[in-house]
Design a protein around this nucleic acid. Structure first.
Lengths: 98, 98
DNA sequence: CTGGTACTTGCGTGTTTGCGCAAGAAGTGA
DNA sequence: TCACTTCTTGCGCAAACACGCAAGTACCAG
């Protein structure tokens, strides 16, 4: 039996932001891609099959939810998963949806 | 290191539906409430502070994502969590957002 | 300084979402 | 059947979202 204590409304809004970040197939594809290691924006755009500006917006959602972090190398910006727990959460969601 | 195999697009859409179910503060409040045990729609509406039709729609989202199940007793319909993993996923999300 | 690459931001558009309200099931009891 | 309770569904509207495209910012090489 898992202990769940009640959250405040503002806390739930922050948690919901994480849920929203996980609510789009393209963003989930980004997480799968980043599971193998960091990637640049244009690489991710190619892999997910969308335009670079669109990818940048999706990455902004993931970033503001705290799921990914960035590192600049010259012109490129490399994104990586912020935490191993992001993959754990995604795996759990996949097992629930199975 | 967590192993993540790539999903198909249709699979990711199903996973994203779970993410969407977790993307609203009221629905998260429902999950917290159901952690203590099953509740009727009107009870949940009172607890979450919204109208019954609105609650019914939120519950439909959770239900179609497979996060909750129902049981009818007379006029009332009792909702409960479909799986312990739903709480585990929520706990993970909370720890990530902390 | 100039040109080129990589990314972000702003804007317009069509779609989806959350909500209140009214109307429709579904069940209970008299 | 009738009245009542409980939940779901349909409708309309405002807000949020995903997307393409154009413009802006940041960095590097020459």
């Amino acid at each position: 039996m898992l202990e769940i204590q009640v959250s405040s409304e503002t806390d739930r809004q922050r948690f919901a932001a994480v849920g929203r970040a996980l609510a789009d197939p393209k963003r989930l594809c980004v997480l799968e891609s980043l599971a193998a290691g960091e990637m640049s924006v244009s690489d991710l755009a190619t892999r997910v099959a969308c335009q670079v500006p669109n990818m940048s917006q999706h990455l902004a959602v993931l970033r503001s939810a705290g799921l990914v972090t960035t590192r600049r190398v010259g012109n490129s910006i490399y994104y990586r998963l912020a935490d191993q727990r992001v993959l754990e959460a995604y795996q759990l969601i996949r097992s629930i949806a199975r």
